[in-house]
């Protein structure tokens, strides 16, 4: 059997892959989610934004053809962003939850002298990172997860937060961490701290004062011109 299947056309070659144990035929321009639906299989979970790559619902484990040798690792990916390849073996990864909720009340972390000290209290495993790189390899967005964990655990929230700009909360890093650090939720904590403690736009605050003083109101009955001024 040829590697690429039959003749390629505008939609790419026709290839065969195994998805959740089922043999599927698909085009190389189709995403894994598309191939699943095109095969007539029911899709009622592990699906969301269907290709934008922002919801993190369609986590899969992917083994590519020829990667069966020891040491050739299985990769994690988002099925809506991954195109079909010949010989792929794919399985969905069900939603991943952290072992513990790690509760905190963001509004109680309002003192910026002490707020960052609370990070290792809420995430006590974070300083124990053994730098195995598992989270970095698991992240389908290529985020430097391990670096974020290191920065966050020493209170460098402003350096840590932007590293998680692209996080889609797929939680694959949580599953990958042998120390149970919960990087996905740690990333959210530092991001939320940075915004809630230190974003105070003057224009917004001025408008809020005007509204409170009653100098900004809406006249519901106003005559509105057809064309914008």
């Amino acid at each position: 059997m040829s590697r690429e299947g039959d003749e390629p056309d505008a939609r790419g070659a026709r290839v065969r892959l195994r998805f959740e144990g089922q043999e599927l035929e698909a085009r190389t321009d189709a995403s894994l989610v598309q191939a699943w639906l095109d095969a007539g299989l029911p899709l009622v979970e592990n699906v969301g934004c269907m290709g934008q790559g922002v919801c993190g619902a369609c986590r899969v484990l992917v083994r590519r053809e020829g990667e069966h040798a020891p040491g050739e690792s299985v990769q994690t990916a988002l099925a809506c962003e991954t195109r079909c390849e010949h010989g792929m073996e794919v399985t969905f990864v069900d939603p991943i939850s952290a072992r513990r909720p790690r509760p905190y009340d963001l509004r109680a972390l309002g003192d910026s002298w002490t707020a960052f000290d609370r990070i290792p209290e809420i995430f006590p495993e974070a300083p124990h990172c053994r730098h195995c790189g598992g989270c970095d390899r698991a992240c389908p967005k290529g985020i430097e997860v391990e670096r974020m964990v290191g920065l966050a655990s020493v209170g460098r929230a402003f350096d840590a937060a932007p590293l998680f700009d692209e996080c889609v909360m797929c939680n694959l890093c949580i599953a990958a961490c042998p120390e149970h650090i919960d990087p996905a939720h740690l990333g959210q904590l530092v991001r939320r701290l940075v915004a809630s403690l230190a974003l105070r736009p003057a224009d917004l605050m001025a408008r809020l004062r005007e509204i409170e003083a009653g100098t900004q109101t809406v006249d519901v009955e106003a005559e509105i011109p057809e064309e914008a001024p």
Partner: peptide, 10 residues
């Protein structure tokens, strides 16, 4: 303001 209070950045 409420969103910033929840931790959203702009």
């Amino acid at each position: 303001r409420w969103l910033i209070g929840e931790g959203m950045s702009f």
